[in-house]
Deep mutational scan, measured.
Amino acid sequence: KEQQNAFYEILHLPNLTEEQRNGFIQSLKDDPSVSKEILAEAKKLNDAQA
């Protein structure tokens, strides 16, 4: 469930490039146990690119 939530949120971050988004999603698939950390990174990058 946590992985699904992170997946959904990353898909809807407006400021990520397609490449960045795909990278985060691939990381989620590779290691779902760190989905919280991956989501935090994605949000940080999204904010930095706002």
Rank of each mutant, 00 (worst) to 15 (best):
K1M: 15
K1E: 15
K1F: 04
K1T: 15
K1C: 03
E2K: 06
E2I: 10
E2Q: 08
E2R: 04
E2Y: 01
E2C: 07
Q3T: 10
Q3H: 08
Q3Y: 09
Q3K: 09
Q3R: 03
Q4M: 07
Q4S: 08
Q4D: 13
Q4E: 15
Q4K: 06
Q4N: 07
N5R: 08
N5K: 08
N5Q: 10
N5A: 07
N5T: 12
N5E: 11
N5G: 11
A6Q: 08
A6W: 12
A6F: 13
A6D: 13
A6P: 14
F7N: 05
F7L: 14
F7G: 09
F7M: 11
F7I: 06
F7E: 15
F7T: 11
F7A: 07
Y8G: 10
Y8T: 14
Y8W: 05
Y8E: 15
Y8K: 11
E9S: 03
E9C: 05
E9D: 06
E9Y: 08
E9H: 05
E9W: 07
I10N: 01
I10C: 02
L11G: 09
L11E: 15
L11N: 12
L11W: 06
L11F: 06
L11P: 01
L11A: 14
H12Y: 14
H12C: 05
H12L: 15
L13G: 00
L13Q: 03
L13R: 00
L13N: 01
P14Y: 08
P14F: 08
P14L: 10
P14K: 12
P14I: 10
P14V: 08
P14S: 07
P14Q: 14
N15D: 10
N15T: 04
N15G: 06
N15K: 04
N15Q: 04
N15A: 10
L16R: 00
L16W: 00
L16Y: 00
L16V: 02
L16N: 00
L16S: 00
L16Q: 00
L16G: 00
L16A: 00
L16F: 01
L16T: 00
T17W: 03
T17P: 01
T17K: 04
T17E: 03
T17Q: 04
E18Q: 07
E18H: 13
E18V: 10
E18R: 09
E18I: 09
E19Y: 04
E19C: 07
E19T: 14
E19P: 09
E19D: 10
E19G: 05
E19V: 14
E19H: 14
E19L: 09
Q20P: 00
Q20K: 01
Q20I: 02
Q20W: 02
Q20V: 03
Q20L: 02
Q20R: 01
Q20S: 02
R21F: 03
R21W: 02
R21V: 06
R21P: 00
R21N: 01
R21G: 01
R21T: 05
N22D: 15
N22Q: 10
N22Y: 08
N22C: 12
N22F: 10
N22A: 11
N22H: 10
N22I: 09
N22E: 08
G23P: 01
G23E: 06
G23K: 14
G23L: 13
G23Y: 11
G23C: 06
G23D: 13
G23V: 10
F24V: 01
F24T: 01
F24C: 02
F24D: 00
F24Y: 05
F24R: 00
F24S: 01
F24I: 03
F24L: 08
I25S: 04
I25D: 01
I25Y: 06
I25F: 10
I25N: 03
Q26N: 12
Q26Y: 03
Q26S: 12
Q26L: 06
S27V: 13
S27C: 03
S27F: 08
S27I: 12
S27P: 01
S27Q: 03
L28I: 10
L28P: 00
L28T: 03
L28M: 09
L28F: 05
L28R: 00
L28C: 04
L28E: 01
L28S: 02
L28D: 00
L28A: 03
K29L: 07
D30N: 09
D30P: 04
D30L: 08
D30Y: 08
D30V: 15
D30S: 09
D31Y: 15
D31I: 08
D31M: 09
D31G: 07
D31W: 13
D31F: 15
D31A: 09
D31R: 04
P32M: 14
P32G: 08
P32V: 06
P32A: 13
P32F: 08
P32S: 07
P32T: 05
S33K: 12
S33P: 05
S33W: 06
S33R: 07
S33C: 05
S33E: 10
V34E: 13
V34P: 03
V34Y: 13
V34T: 13
V34F: 12
V34G: 14
V34I: 13
V34K: 06
V34S: 10
S35M: 09
S35P: 05
S35N: 07
S35E: 15
S35R: 05
S35C: 04
S35Y: 14
K36H: 12
K36I: 15
K36M: 14
K36E: 10
K36W: 08
K36V: 11
E37T: 13
E37H: 07
E37P: 05
E37V: 11
E37A: 08
E37M: 11
I38Q: 02
I38K: 04
I38T: 06
I38C: 03
I38S: 02
I38F: 02
L39Q: 04
L39G: 02
L39V: 14
L39T: 07
L39A: 08
L39H: 03
L39K: 03
A40F: 12
A40L: 06
A40W: 11
A40K: 12
A40R: 10
A40G: 07
A40M: 13
A40I: 14
A40S: 13
E41I: 13
E41V: 08
E41S: 14
E41T: 11
E41K: 14
E41C: 02
A42K: 00
A42D: 00
A42Y: 00
A42C: 02
K43F: 05
K43I: 14
K43C: 03
K43E: 05
K43V: 08
K44R: 06
K44G: 06
K44N: 09
K44Q: 13
L45A: 05
L45N: 03
L45Q: 08
L45C: 02
L45K: 04
N46A: 07
N46D: 03
N46C: 03
N46Q: 02
N46G: 03
N46Y: 00
N46H: 03
N46F: 01
N46K: 01
N46L: 01
D47S: 14
D47L: 06
D47T: 09
D47A: 10
D47Y: 06
D47P: 01
D47H: 12
A48I: 14
A48T: 07
A48L: 15
A48V: 11
Q49W: 05
Q49T: 03
Q49P: 04
Q49Y: 15
Q49H: 11
Q49L: 11
A50M: 08
A50K: 10
A50G: 09
A50L: 10
A50P: 08
A50Q: 15
A50F: 05
